[in-house]
């Protein structure tokens, strides 16, 4: 019986040692199937993430805390992008959109006005709410704001919006672009420069915007084939001037045939 106990203890010890070393030097294999998807990129993991993974596997609380902080961030983003239903009911779509954009830190211009509205000291809309009830919003400048898919609910109702600047918005992605079709009857200028999450699949949805005259697409790292995208966009929106990408990329190296090969 003693020998049995010894065997059990010994094998247990060996297992613990093996597991610990695996934790430190690799990712835990029994809870991982990453190699199934991307073995071409040898997993080079920094020491920090390795330690974190070790802690993660040992102490549930760490995992809990990390997840918690992430969901807190998501929650605050959701709150900022909430639908301004109350304002909308009392003062109409335009004022609601204005309040929302100013809250995020952007600016707007009403039709017939020369001045832009920006957030005042209180972080609120400074104008007379009742006065603007009937005046449509014509331009929205949401540069660099944390506007999200849900936040667009506040903008999609603006039937006379002519200019929309979404450049450098970190959360604008293909899903957001797929919602812009509601502005198809009015939108003339759109800027998406520096939206790191936008890809060609999002740009493909812009064909809904019949009135679009100017489209800014500087600095979009996620577009796999800028030249080709540019050609195809011009094909579906012949009246629109596209800035930021051009077909020189196609001419440079990616000949159309290679592209075909890539996509087959």
């Amino acid at each position: 019986l003693i020998s049995v106990k010894l065997i059990v203890k010994f094998t247990f010890l060996v297992q613990v040692c093996r597991q610990a070393s695996v934790h430190l030097w690799q990712r835990a294999p029994w809870r991982d199937c990453t190699s199934a998807t991307r073995p071409d990129r040898a997993p080079r993991i920094s020491f920090r993430t390795r330690v974190l993974q070790l802690l993660y596997n040992r102490f549930y609380d760490i995992e809990y805390l990390v997840n918690r902080s992430q969901s807190l961030r998501n929650w605050s983003l959701r709150r900022k992008n909430a639908f301004h239903g109350y304002t909308r009911e009392r003062y109409g779509d335009n004022v609601a959109a204005a309040c929302y954009i100013l809250n995020l830190g952007g600016g707007i211009r009403f039709s017939g006005e020369r001045e832009w509205f920006w957030k005042n000291q209180l972080g609120k809309f400074g104008g007379d709410l009742n006065h603007f009830r009937e005046i449509p919003v014509e331009e929205v400048d949401a540069k660099g704001t944390p506007i999200t898919y849900d936040g667009l609910n506040n903008l999609t109702l603006l039937s006379s919006l002519r200019t929309l600047d979404l450049s450098n918005c970190p959360h604008v992605d293909d899903w957001c672009l797929s919602r812009l079709h509601t502005l198809s009857e009015s939108l003339e200028e759109l800027s998406l420069s520096g939206c790191k999450k936008v890809s060609d699949k999002g740009l493909a949805t812009l064909h809904h915007l019949k009135k679009l005259k100017k489209l800014e697409l500087f600095d979009l790292p996620h577009i796999s084939n800028p030249g080709l995208v540019c050609i195809l966009l011009e094909e579906v929106m012949p009246e629109c001037e596209i800035l930021g990408i051009d077909y020189s990329d196609v001419l440079k190296g990616n000949s159309l045939e290679e592209i075909n090969k890539q996509h087959s």
């Binding site: 993974q53 899903w175 797929s178 699949k201 493909a204």
Partner: peptide, 12 residues
Amino acid sequence: MNEDPIDVQFNH
């Protein structure tokens, strides 16, 4: 954790 964000290649 420690993985790239998931992109399901949604075509809208």
